[in-house]
Design a protein around this nucleic acid. Structure first.
Lengths: 145, 145
DNA sequence: TGCTTATGGATAATCATTCTCTTTTAATAT
DNA sequence: ATATTAAAAGAGAATGATTATCCATAAGCA
């Protein structure tokens, strides 16, 4: 969420380049994704979009999410319980730190990650192309309660 | 899958200690979990159990999975598409290396993981209690094809 | 052997997500 | 500006994994 407007324009440009249509609903969905750091769920985006477009269908949100995943502009964060969350600002794989109490998600700096993946690549012979690194714990705020 | 029989006995002992009943179905489910390294899905276990107990219900497998998760004897590995997999041999969090071609899952040694988590804990103030580290890539066998 | 109660089995319910089908509309040409 | 047309929106049904319900069964123990 460094510069939401710039990010929005970048994604719109990419959509145009690939000849996808720019609809008001898509703009609203994109705006919801790029204007927050909470790693929103589909439900959150749906509720945001309905503020300006009350007739929006949940299916439209899902279809746009699929599209954005395909063009590589949002990152899907899988949860075991099914409730996926998304990152529209850093659409490339990166570690997440998730509070198990309040479900807040932040993006920590992890300087050791590159060394970790190359360690594994060397030891196993795998060509590592991607990762999903989720750390779970209790955030400072919840620790005080 | 170091010693399936020993592992089975250990889990049975734990169930007895906590006054859960030892049923033939539970033994069969446990056996399916501890006798493979493929990180099985519920469906896989269900099919294995049905070989010896054809009337077994899928609900029974799910109920046992929930129980085993609660007593800490299997580890759930979440996938974004919902199809969870389980590890009955190393029920504590550990990294997985997943081949995106053949879907094989192996458990690599990752010596840097402890340092990585403590680095993040120190930088963020979170109490890190668990993790889910999945590395994706192409295994040596699939690279040759 | 019988009693008690947890567990098993069958099936319905749930919930996120996907699909289907019809209507609307963005983008382009006229 | 208007017409054209194919993509996208909207509504609701369908799907698939998981969970809940409820009755029958059997594990564990006296």
């Amino acid at each position: 969420m460094n510069n939401p407007q710039q990010r929005l324009d970048d994604i719109l440009k990419k959509l145009r380049q690939r000849e996808f249509r720019i609809t008001p609903q898509r703009i609203a969905i994109l705006q919801a994704f790029v204007s927050t750091d909470i790693h929103p769920s589909v439900e959150y985006v749906y509720n945001q979009v309905k503020i300006t477009f009350p007739t929006t269908s949940l299916a439209t949100v899902y279809k746009t999410v699929t599209l954005l995943k395909e063009i590589g502009e949002i990152l899907e964060i899988g949860f075991p319980d099914g409730r996926n969350r998304y990152d529209g600002n850093k659409p490339y794989p990166h570690p997440h730190l998730i509070c198990t109490r309040c479900h807040r998600i932040i993006d920590p700096d992890v300087s050791l990650l590159d060394r970790l993946t190359s360690e594994v690549a060397q030891a196993t012979g795998y060509q590592i192309t991607s990762h999903q690194v989720e750390l779970f714990g209790v955030c400072p705020v919840c620790q005080k309660k």
